[in-house]
Amino acid sequence: MIPFPTPNRRRVYLMRHGAVTYFDETGRPIEPDTVPLNEEGRKQATAAGRTFAAENIMFDRVIVSGLPRTVETAQRVLAEMPAMQARGVALEQWPELQEIRGGKLGEIPEHELAQAFIGVFEGTVPEERRFLHGESIGEFLDRVIPALARLRDLPDWDTVLLVLHGGTNRAILSHAITGGERVFFGNLAQTAGCINALDVGDEPSDWVLRMSNFSPPSPVHFGSRLTTMEVLLQQYLRYRNPA
């Protein structure tokens, strides 16, 4: 009888950055690559850090996309973890893991707005579909999946924290839950500041999803049932079509 070989798996904690404000007080869009966390986002990042600290979790690497909202979230998480501060792990910026890139909102025809905002986050999304007339799902996967493979090839970590974006997290989760397939499930909810936990083994198909979309400030997700993009579409329509 051949003994069962014990799988050798490592742990990936995958976070979405905390909440940000994408429109100013007049409703005008703010450049998404520059927005910082808002007050709610800062609370979410702090809550996540306290959750990790309570479980005495340590990270060998901490990776962010480089956009300010991921950097600030990671910094606030680590600020709640004295043991990690003593360890002195520096943030690594992987720009290939930035959010799916949109085009210019003002160039999107009125009748295409809903599909442009929401279509990328509905069901199994075809690779040719574009986000806000910008990057396609296929182009997005072309940079996210190789970055994930590069992370798996690095031997010097057992537990890693990734602080990324709603779309990027969906790409990673879709890849993981299908055992390494190239697919994008748009309806995998990713609340601002949420935590996902995945284990990854040596074989390309060896992924185990332990936890998805855990939101430390509101674990049972009480409140609005709109998605992030549905809320943003409503905000943008008020700016574009003022009463």
Rank of each mutant, 00 (worst) to 15 (best):
R152D: 09
G223E: 13
F121E: 00
G102H: 08
N187C: 09
L164C: 12
T159A: 07
A90V: 11
L162E: 04
W157M: 10
L164K: 02
M229W: 12
L148G: 00
S136A: 05
E107Y: 06
E122D: 05
E127M: 12
H133Q: 12
T227H: 09
P217A: 00
A171C: 03
G167C: 11
V125D: 12
E99I: 12
W94S: 01
H111M: 06
P217W: 00
I118S: 01
A90M: 07
T124R: 13
D153E: 15
P95D: 04
L113C: 11
V220M: 02
G179E: 09
R182T: 10
P219E: 08
V144N: 02
Q85I: 10
E122R: 11
G119T: 13
T124Y: 07
R143F: 14
F140S: 00
M229L: 05
A149Q: 06
I195A: 14
Q85P: 11
V125E: 06
P155I: 15
R210I: 12
T191A: 12
G103H: 03
N169P: 11
E203L: 05
G123P: 09
N213A: 11
E96K: 09
G102T: 07
I137L: 15
I108K: 01
P155M: 13
T227N: 02
P126V: 13
R129D: 08
E112D: 10
G138K: 04
R129Q: 14
E139P: 03
E139G: 14
L161G: 08
R170W: 15
S212A: 15
P219S: 02
D153R: 04
I100G: 12
G201S: 06
W94P: 01
P216F: 01
P219V: 08
N169T: 04
I177K: 03
L148E: 01
P216H: 01
E135P: 12
L113R: 07
V144L: 05
V125G: 08
I172S: 06
L209P: 00
P217N: 00
L188N: 00
F121M: 05
E127Y: 14
H175W: 08
R152H: 11
M84S: 07
A176L: 09
R152A: 14
L164V: 12
I195V: 15
G102E: 13
V183M: 05
E139H: 11
G180F: 06
R101F: 14
M229R: 01
A86V: 02
R225M: 07
Q190K: 06
R101H: 14
A90C: 06
V125Q: 04
L198W: 07
G201Q: 05
I172H: 04
R129S: 11
R170Y: 15
F121L: 08
V220A: 05
G201M: 09
F184T: 06
D142C: 01
I137T: 15
G119H: 15
I100P: 14
H165T: 05
I108E: 07
E139W: 13
L209I: 14
V144Q: 01
F222Y: 03
R210Y: 10
V183W: 02
P109R: 06
G201R: 08
